[in-house]
């Protein structure tokens, strides 16, 4: 007979909740930071993709292609150990941030490219005819309208980023939600309880983010 001896013990997990919540905060701001940087890079890649310069276009296409067609886990892994092999050491947090940002930028570029089709070329024309430079027309007329169109995909990407930060453990990150949880289980072997609570925190974090994003969307794009 299968002898099921595992007994749930929650007290210890509850006692360590503050440490996990600290980790959740790190998870959240890492994801948020990776989004902010990712959006800026995506907008840059987008204009590179549309430029006449072959080199710029190739870099953008290559970036998007690698980001979308390789596992995020390997991207983070290579950034951490790969850069290490070249003598450049980065912290596990920096590797995680870079990996997630790399990915965000790749996916968002594709989203933005689709969204751009909904901003008519005539908007740029009108802006240029008023004497704006192409940079001014792009940043002040096109991008604000693009952001409205791609706000929903941006929200989804943010939630993806939030969950994917859990990959930091593969490069030894130990203070984000997943890392902190993992460290606690290593000490106590209450793996199931800790992971269950971590899952709940991730869930709540994701739902909260979604809710706040919706509110912000209403406020920002009510025109």
């Amino acid at each position: 007979m299968f002898d099921f001896k595992y007994r749930f013990q929650w007290r210890q997990v509850i006692n360590n909740l503050p440490a996990m919540l600290d980790g959740a905060w790190i998870t959240f701001y890492t994801a948020l930071l990776s989004m902010v940087i990712g959006i800026v890079i995506a907008l840059t890649l987008l204009s590179m993709r549309r430029s006449n310069n072959v080199a710029l276009r190739s870099v953008a296409i290559g970036w998007v292609s690698v980001a979308r067609n390789t596992p995020a886990l390997l991207q983070i892994y290579f950034l951490y150990f790969g850069l290490g092999a070249f003598g450049a050491t980065i912290s596990s947090w920096a590797a995680l941030l870079a990996g997630i940002t790399f990915n965000n930028a790749g996916y968002l570029t594709e989203n933005f490219r689709g969204g751009l089709r909904a901003v008519p070329e005539t908007q740029t024309r009108a802006a240029r005819s008023l004497g704006m430079t192409s940079f001014q027309a792009y940043t002040r007329v096109v991008i604000p309208q693009l952001l409205r169109i791609v706000f929903y995909p941006i929200t989804n990407q943010m939630i993806w980023a939030l969950l994917m930060t859990s990959l930091g453990v593969v490069v030894g990150l130990n203070n984000d939600l997943m890392g902190a949880t993992k460290a606690l289980t290593d000490l106590s072997y209450r793996t199931f309880e800790y992971f269950a609570v971590a899952a709940i925190i991730y869930y709540v974090l994701a739902k909260l983010t979604f809710g706040v994003a919706r509110l912000a969307g209403w406020k920002l794009f009510s025109y």
């Binding site: 908007q123 024309r125 009108a126 309208q145 794009f221 025109y223």
Partner: peptide, 10 residues
Amino acid sequence: VFQQWNAFAH
């Protein structure tokens, strides 16, 4: 001024 007025919607 164009046929399509091209207001900046935002």
